[in-house]
Amino acid sequence: MEHLENLKLLNDVSLSPPSEWQLNVPPPYKFPPKLRFLTLSFTYFDWGNMSVLGMLENLEVLKLKDNAFVGNYWETTDGAFRRLEVLQIGYTDLICWVASGHHFPRLRRLELRNCEELGEVPLGLAEIPSLQIMDLHRASKSAVHSAKKIQSTKLEKGDGFTLSIFPPDL
């Protein structure tokens, strides 16, 4: 396990509602030390526990699929996600996400899929020089609006940036 770099965790055991059981994010020392790629699905962790994943020193790609995390609010912790390059969030009930450029200093790509409750993409992400690609698939109009503001800011700075929105009529 100490050389493991890619881990996918899928909760396929419980069919009962998550309110009847609670999974907790293990402490950072329980994860393989060289972990670079992590995918979580149906784990229903609380967004307040995301700080644990932010402490994984070598994490480069984080895919949160199908209610990996649930809850209305996520405030990114200072000093977290120092090496994260790709963040994918899909099918979540997240409404408010608070983050700035110094939270994800190496982020290159952000994918939000079916995050229809999210009020906005944090405008502070425009401060990340390495952020080059943002994909929104089935997002709220307000999230799309904020993503377009990020695009405008990035282009004004002369940063290369691509924004993809589906459906395109938003």
Rank of each mutant, 00 (worst) to 15 (best):
K8P: 00
E117H: 11
E117V: 03
K157H: 08
P167R: 09
L4W: 06
V61G: 00
S100K: 11
S140E: 07
W97G: 01
G71I: 05
A147H: 01
G119E: 15
L4A: 10
L107F: 04
Y44W: 12
T43D: 07
L38S: 01
F81Q: 03
K8H: 13
N24T: 08
A80Y: 05
I89H: 00
P26L: 14
E117M: 12
L62H: 02
K157D: 10
F104M: 05
L10S: 09
F104H: 03
P17N: 07
E2L: 12
D78C: 05
L131R: 01
L163M: 03
N11S: 12
P33S: 05
L56Q: 03
R82A: 11
Y44E: 04
G160E: 15
R138K: 12
R113E: 13
V25H: 00
G54P: 01
E2P: 04
V86H: 11
W47L: 03
L23M: 12
M50N: 03
K157C: 05
R83T: 03
F42V: 08
Y44H: 15
G71N: 09
S130L: 09
P27A: 12
G119F: 07
E5V: 07
W21N: 02
N72Y: 08
F161W: 03
E20C: 06
Q22E: 15
L23V: 04
T92A: 10
H3L: 10
G158T: 09
L136T: 01
S142H: 06
P28Q: 07
G158F: 10
M55N: 12
R83L: 09
G79H: 09
C115W: 00
P167E: 08
L10A: 07
L155I: 12
K30I: 06
S16L: 13
M134N: 04
R106P: 01
P122D: 07
Q88T: 13
L112H: 02
K34R: 14
E120G: 01
N11E: 15
G119I: 10
E20P: 00
W47V: 00
T43E: 07
Y29K: 11
D159C: 11
F81V: 02
P26Y: 08
L9C: 11
S146L: 00
L35N: 02
P18Q: 08
S142M: 06
F104S: 04
E2D: 14
N49S: 15
T92S: 15
A99D: 02
H145C: 08
V13L: 14
S14Q: 11
R109A: 09
L125H: 00
I165S: 06
E120V: 03
L94D: 01
R113Q: 10
H102P: 03
I95H: 08
S41G: 09
N24M: 09
L56K: 01
N114F: 12
G101W: 05
M50C: 09
T153S: 12
Y29G: 03
P27D: 15
